[in-house]
Design a protein around this nucleic acid. Structure first.
Lengths: 210, 210
DNA sequence: TCCGTTGGTGGACAGAGTGTACGGACAGCG
DNA sequence: CGCTGTCCGTACACTCTGTCCACCAACGGA
């Protein structure tokens, strides 16, 4: 009896996952044609995903809940991929910092359409706003902790206000990535910008102390 | 005859300006209640401004052209208010940089609702996007020129790639201001963040050279 | 004063998109 | 075979946008 109930639940989840995957692919395809998620209508989505309107609303309350489902993983992955930066060894050199930024950079790159959709959703969707800003705050907190820790050990510039510095630097990274990828300039300038970012971060945080 | 024609033109412009002012006030009021410009409907706007729908469409093609008219001045003012930074004297000290940032900071603060509307409009409105990004690029270019000039004279860190550095720093400032003001945290944190921003900019650009 | 012109208004309406309800078709299971 | 669950398509009410147009008030000129 309970086993049967769990089986039904598992089946529903599998069906939802399948519908979500079809919609994910539809979103990616339509966005790759130049439309923003904001501009996409539910009609366009269901047609591209080849599901009926009724089915869409069986599994998702609205377009916002679809976006939440689509970006939750990407947001979490971005936060955790930044860990290589915080876990960089104490005796690291500038090239090590550059390498430690790549996981997060690549994570954003790989999910850049959804990340852009989330960024843009912050302006009209309270739930997306909450989730996205939570990601920003978690990243800034991790960076502030990294600064605090580095200052207590001696490899981070001790004159920095860790919280405020972490905020500014987080905003800089997040905005740069959004602008870079949403404007289709990553192919030509991505590596150059990543290197200059790494250089700036090194200069701000570590130069003279590491 | 031409004089008469010019009189009619002037009258129309005066009428348009009056309608635009009513709509500007409506926008500010509605946004101050927590709505984003994106979320505002033309219906809400005309009701708040106490004009008819037909009148709105006599003077504005759509909501986008209203926003363009509303933000053009604010965008131009922001760019020109940053000039105090570029024109800072060569022998300036950290506190001078802090002071030179205030005009732009205050300009953003005073127009923050419209600036937020423009930022958010970049995700669904090509014309707003073009204008807003032009503002960003003009600011980044002015900063890059400032860096180049400072490097040639010797008061800016010569190891910086001026173009890329200018881009990152512009994005940081722009994003910080948007997040600060759109999330209603400026009252508690504005001054602190401005000071930490100034400190970071000094450290990146001038420390050891000025 | 009268008349013509102008500008704003409100109402009507078509179209686009959203979200809901529901009947029909079909597959799977007991 | 009958029942159940799922997906589908259709219909529809609602909201909002943008357009059209008749009406009216105000104004200026003769």
């Amino acid at each position: 009896m309970p086993t049967d109930h769990n089986n039904q639940q598992a089946d529903r989840e599998a069906r939802q996952a399948a519908v979500q995957l079809a919609l994910h692919d539809a979103v990616i395809e339509l966005m790759n044609r130049g439309e923003t998620f904001t501009e996409l209508s539910v009609e366009e989505l269901i047609q591209s995903a080849r599901i009926s309107r009724s089915t869409f609303y069986v599994y998702f309350e609205d377009k916002s809940s679809l976006l939440q489902a689509l970006v939750d993983g990407a947001l979490a992955e971005l936060v955790s991929s930044a860990r290589s930066w915080w876990e960089m060894p104490i005796e690291a050199e500038p090239s090590d910092l550059l390498d430690s930024l790549r996981p997060a950079w690549n994570s954003y790159r790989d999910n850049h359409l959804l990340m852009a959709a989330a960024t843009e959703g912050t302006s009209y969707d309270p739930e997306i706003r909450a989730r996205y800003y939570e990601m920003i705050e978690r990243t800034a907190t991790a960076l502030a902790d990294h600064i605090d820790h580095g200052q207590s050990i001696g490899y981070v510039n001790p004159s920095l206000d860790s919280i405020r510095t972490a905020e500014w630097l987080t905003w800089m990274c997040e905005r740069g990535l959004y602008l870079l990828y949403s404007r289709g300039r990553a192919t030509e300038h991505g590596e150059t910008l990543l290197r200059s970012l790494s250089g700036l971060l090194w200069k701000i945080l570590y130069q003279g102390y590491r």
